[in-house]
């Protein structure tokens, strides 16, 4: 499978023929699935708490749809012999998770059932940054050498533009409204700039992913994302993007992920065998 031969892999069985290809593919799938899963989990915590009723309806639709996308990626992993979808989503240790750390970050202080002091500015910045990134990553993946994944990416891209448009609108409106709203966004943008770095990483198999044409390079992914964000902000923060807490792509995580897992594992164990 040399670069340039344009070899297309059409099935899980075929992907299993080359152990290195298989490993790189699985890494990529875990990133896609775990990112969407964590983003939609944090989204689901807002249920009933969004700024107004229309937003509550919209946000929960987006969340449910994004959870559906995570499910599609977990299904591809199931086909590759990684285990059942439910187990992959709910029952893996933090060290096995490949979502970026910024995406597991709590919505704010407080607890969902007690006193949630969630921050809408964080949610707007996080989701706008994430959906912008997701679109770029998926567009690249529609040309992936793994056909089943390219197909799924194409399907997700039929739905995801609505999510991006939603968060872009929130971002623009708040960014151009009162000084207070703008200042709150700016605080969260500065924070994101210290933490967003690993979202744009592809992990230990980045080189293989590019070699097998599963995905574009990290540099390209990052450049395209920065370009999009610059269009929105006018100028980018002067410092380089950081990854303050490490890289989720390498299995590094914070206690916020432990907290998330604890909650969705509870739900899973109490309701095992239930359908999504």
């Amino acid at each position: 499978m040399e670069r340039g031969e344009e070899k297309v892999i059409t099935s899980a069985e075929q992907a299993k023929q080359d152990p290195t290809y298989l490993q790189a593919l699985k890494e990529l799938l875990y990133q896609l699935a775990d990112d969407d899963f964590l983003v939609s989990f944090r989204g689901s915590e807002w249920l009933g708490l969004a700024p107004h009723i229309e937003e509550d309806v919209a946000f929960s639709s987006i969340t449910q749809n994004t959870m559906g996308h995570a499910l599609l990626f977990y299904q591809l992993l199931e086909e590759l012999g990684e285990g059942k979808v439910d187990v992959l989503a709910h029952d893996r240790k933090p060290s096995e998770r490949k979502n970026a750390i910024y995406l597991e970050k709590k919505n704010g202080e407080g607890h969902y059932t007690e006193e949630p002091y969630y921050d809408w500015a964080l949610t707007v910045v996080r989701n706008y940054f994430y959906e912008t990134f997701k679109k770029i990553k998926l567009e690249a993946i529609t040309k992936s050498s793994y056909q089943p994944l390219a197909n799924v990416a194409g399907k997700v891209l039929m739905e995801q533009p609505y999510h991006l448009a939603h968060w872009k609108l929130w971002f623009e409106q708040l960014y151009n409204s009162t000084d207070d709203a703008r200042a709150r966004l700016q605080t969260r943008i500065a924070e994101a700039w210290e933490e967003f770095g690993d979202v744009l990483e592809l992990g230990p198999y980045a080189t293989e992913m590019a070699h097998f044409e599963l995905m574009i390079s990290e540099v390209e992914l990052r450049d395209r994302w920065l370009e999009e964000i610059e269009l929105m902000l006018g100028t980018l923060p002067s410092r380089t993007l950081g990854k303050k807490y490490g890289s989720g792509r390498e299995g590094e995580h914070t206690s916020d992920l432990d907290q998330a897992i604890e909650i969705f594992q509870d739900v899973y164990v109490s309701d095992e065998g239930a359908v999504w």
Binding site: V57, A58, S61, Q64, T142, H166
Partner: peptide, 30 residues
């Protein structure tokens, strides 16, 4: 509201007959 009760539907309002109604979002191959 672009997002109705499910992801596939949107909520619209008719200025002529003053009825709210739902519409299926267009979803086409990107």
């Amino acid at each position: 509201n672009v997002f109705g009760p499910t992801a596939c539907r949107s909520i619209l309002y008719c200025q002529a007959c003053k009825n709210p109604f739902e519409a299926m979002k267009p979803v086409v191959d990107y």
